[in-house]
Simulated assay, not measured.
Amino acid sequence: MPQQLMNWYDRPQYFDMVFRDETNDEVRFFEKAFAKLVDTPVKRLYEPGCGSGRLVAAMAGRGYELVATDNNDAMLAYLQKRLKRRGLPSELLNTDMTTHVCKPAVDAAFCTFNTFRHLLDADSAETHLRSVADSLRPGGIYILGFHCIPLDADPDCTERWSAMHGGTKVSVTLRVINFERRKRRETLRVSIKATKANGQIERIRSEFQLRLYTPAQAKTLLKSVDDVFEIASVHDFDYDLDEQRKMDNDLTDAVFILRKR
């Protein structure tokens, strides 16, 4: 059976499954960062580009008030049903993460696992950061995570992993099919095979672009907004708040904690 070329973001249940193993580590990291780096109680949170909302649901379940945005109706509908089942209120908006500003202001924001790299040019990236700063109260933090590309990166990269939940097994192959260092873009192809409990199989293939950042380019971007943000700390995808990373060429899985001035 041929794979169907479609947006994998239109299958939120599969998208959610392949990332849910990261959720507990991220939630613990967020709460430690709130306690250590924010001087006042953190109650109101914002996630731009929330996708299936695994982090929104997790943080709402811990008593936080959530604002979340995405530009995909299927993702937001999936999240709305999840929150409704658990009786968790949240403010969900289909809007542009580049320009959205939360009102009233939030205490902290987070955007992890490369969502930020969907902003494909410098203006969009900086505008987004400034919009998040406008959404935060003074002293609030933005936890921003994305992969940086080392100078010796192999453009022919393929990753495979699988996940299972509720009798459904999802196998994912992620392949770089085009890598343009000068244009700072890579095109990824995601192939999904979902095998359901009844034996039914669904195959999906999706292609999308992400912006490339070397550690130096990430540093340059953050410097462009240092009038509104200071870098409070730098970490990696181990999510260990006690282990800080240098912004050098070895930083590939980057988590930046930015504090509003």
Rank of each mutant, 00 (worst) to 15 (best):
G166R: 05
L212G: 04
H128W: 04
G167S: 07
S171F: 04
E186R: 12
P150W: 04
L212Q: 07
S206C: 11
T195G: 01
R175V: 02
C148P: 04
E180G: 10
M164H: 08
D238G: 13
S233K: 06
G139Q: 10
P138C: 07
R160M: 10
A197T: 07
P138G: 05
I231C: 05
T173A: 01
L174H: 02
I177M: 00
L188Y: 06
S191G: 06
M164Y: 07
R181C: 03
E230C: 07
E186T: 07
K223T: 13
T214L: 07
K223W: 08
K223N: 12
R185L: 14
T214P: 01
A194Q: 03
K223E: 14
M164V: 15
N198S: 12
L136N: 08
K196V: 08
I192F: 10
V132D: 02
Y213D: 08
S191N: 06
K169E: 15
G140Y: 11
N178D: 15
R185E: 10
G167P: 02
P138R: 06
G166A: 05
K183T: 09
T220M: 12
A133Q: 04
D236N: 13
G140E: 08
Q200Y: 11
S131L: 07
F146N: 05
N178V: 01
H235C: 03
R185N: 01
R205C: 13
G139P: 10
V176G: 00
L221V: 10
V170Q: 01
A216L: 11
D238Q: 12
A125C: 14
R184V: 03
T127P: 03
S162D: 11
A153S: 09
N178R: 13
S191Q: 13
Q217N: 03
I141K: 03
T220F: 13
V132N: 01
A218V: 09
E126F: 03
R181F: 13
R189L: 00
N198P: 06
A153Y: 12
L222M: 15
Y142W: 11
E207Y: 07
N178C: 07
L174I: 03
V190G: 00
E159D: 07
D227N: 08
T187C: 02
S131M: 05
R185P: 01
T168D: 07
Y213C: 10
D227F: 02
G139V: 10
R185H: 08
L144R: 03
E230R: 11
R160N: 09
R211S: 12
V190R: 06
D226N: 15
L129W: 04
A216N: 06
E202C: 02
T168S: 11
L188V: 05
I149Y: 02
Q209R: 11
G167W: 02
L136V: 12
T187Y: 00
D156T: 01
V132P: 02
I143L: 15
K193W: 05
E159C: 00
G145M: 11
L210R: 05
D154N: 15
H128F: 14
T173E: 12
I177T: 09
L129V: 09
M164S: 15
T168F: 12
L222I: 15
F229Q: 03
L151I: 14
K196F: 15
R175Q: 11
D123A: 14
L222S: 08
L136F: 09
S135E: 09
